[in-house]
Simulated assay, not measured.
Amino acid sequence: MDKLKLYMIMLGCKPTGRHTEQHDVFFSLAGSLKETIPHAKAFWPEAQDNMHLDAWREVTHVDGYEVSVVPKTSGPMENKLFFINLGGYKAGEFDEPHYKLLVVAPDLASATQQAKQTAFFKHTGFTGANAHIDDKYGIDVDDIYQVEDILPAGFRDHYSLSVNPMPSQAIDEIHLGYFKLKTILG
């Protein structure tokens, strides 16, 4: 197996009985994108053979920080990587647009404050339909997770994410499109 890397993947599927395509974001550690697929299938078993990828990235850099996979450490890391799913509304549109982001912060409160500074949060909402961070810790918070906490269990037990400042502002490549699993698996 190659050196482990952190992957962020947007899974897509139209499950049996649904009228629209559903999505979820999945994080995994692997040596290659191909190696993430068995973990993605275990994460979303209802998707069966209908699953595809709509977006993916190898997470190595976030806002001036380098992200790497290291053996599990015994003590807390100063910087943590958070995944945040912002939801909002636009007047007259029958939809709830979402903006998914990664944030480096020492704690949940700091990560939440960073998310509330994004243009999406400030401009996607109106009186009675405010922008929000989707549903985990109370008002105005929907989906916010420390990435280490939502990795597949086998990885959480043995690995940590090292998040350290770096002088360059490198940016990860984001791959967008409709990626069939059979194409990824070769």
Rank of each mutant, 00 (worst) to 15 (best):
M1F: 10
D2Y: 10
K3G: 08
K3D: 11
K3T: 14
Y7P: 06
M8R: 11
M8I: 03
M10C: 11
L11W: 03
L11A: 15
G12P: 00
K14M: 14
D24M: 07
A30T: 04
S32I: 03
L33I: 09
L33T: 04
H39V: 02
A40R: 01
K41P: 01
A42P: 01
F43K: 00
W44G: 00
H52D: 04
H52E: 04
R57S: 14
E58V: 12
H61K: 10
H61S: 13
Y65V: 07
E66K: 14
P71K: 09
K80C: 10
F83Q: 05
I84Q: 00
E93K: 10
E93T: 09
P97Q: 13
K100H: 15
V104H: 02
A109S: 11
A109W: 04
Q114S: 12
A115E: 05
A119W: 11
F121A: 01
H123T: 15
G128F: 04
N130D: 14
D134K: 14
D134N: 15
D134C: 11
D135Q: 14
K136W: 09
Y137K: 05
D142F: 08
I144M: 13
I144D: 01
E148V: 04
G154D: 13
H158Y: 06
H158Q: 15
S160L: 10
M166A: 01
P167M: 09
P167I: 09
A170H: 04
E173K: 13
H175V: 00
G177N: 08
G177R: 07
F179G: 02
K180L: 10
T183M: 09
T183W: 06
